[in-house]
């Protein structure tokens, strides 16, 4: 595959264009990497095997006992850093805090439904259900619906 790099003056004009015959898993991988701007997200599984995680595969990040875990549809990785750092780092990639201990990926969200007393239940595309607490419900709703 040929690779071209062309300099641009404005950072807003930076982009990656992939020209391919068909979208293969490898192309999807390149796309995921480009979408996350190559930000290194790696984590360890139970077997202490360090693996690279595509940000768009992450359904949510969860903090448990000072540790932060990245949960994909089928795996859970322990990652370094604090939950608020994850929240800030990936805010632009569709991640939003939904409770004290969870930052969810809005791209992996299927729908929400009202729960008890101002809280909402987030139904993820992989079937998991997460609680959106009252404190963070407005942030989640405004991220999608806008301020207007």
């Amino acid at each position: 595959m040929r690779v071209f790099i062309r300099n641009v003056a404005n950072p807003d004009d930076e982009r990656v264009i992939i020209e391919c015959v068909r979208v293969t898993p490898e192309i999807e991988e390149i796309r995921a990497f480009a979408l996350t701007k190559g930000e290194g997200l790696s984590g360890t599984t139970d077997g202490q095997q360090k693996e690279r995680i595509a940000l768009e595969d992450v359904c949510y990040f969860e903090a448990v006992d000072e540790k932060v875990f990245a949960c994909t549809a089928d795996k859970v990785y322990e990652i370094s850093g604090r939950l608020y750092e994850v929240e800030q780092a990936y805010e632009e990639c569709g991640f939003v805090r939904c409770s004290k201990s969870v930052v969810l990926n809005l791209m992996k969200l299927n729908s929400i439904s009202p729960a008890l007393n101002g809280r909402f239940l987030a139904h993820m595309k992989n079937g998991e259900k997460l609680m959106i607490s009252r404190k963070y419900a407005s942030a989640v709703i405004e991220k999608v619906m806008g301020e207007g």
Binding site: L106, S111, P114, F120, V144, M145
Partner: peptide, 15 residues
């Protein structure tokens, strides 16, 4: 809240 959730879900797919 169900009304809010409905409006959110409608917009979520577009978003």
């Amino acid at each position: 809240e169900r009304r809010i959730a409905g409006a959110f879900n409608k917009r979520l797919a577009e978003w």
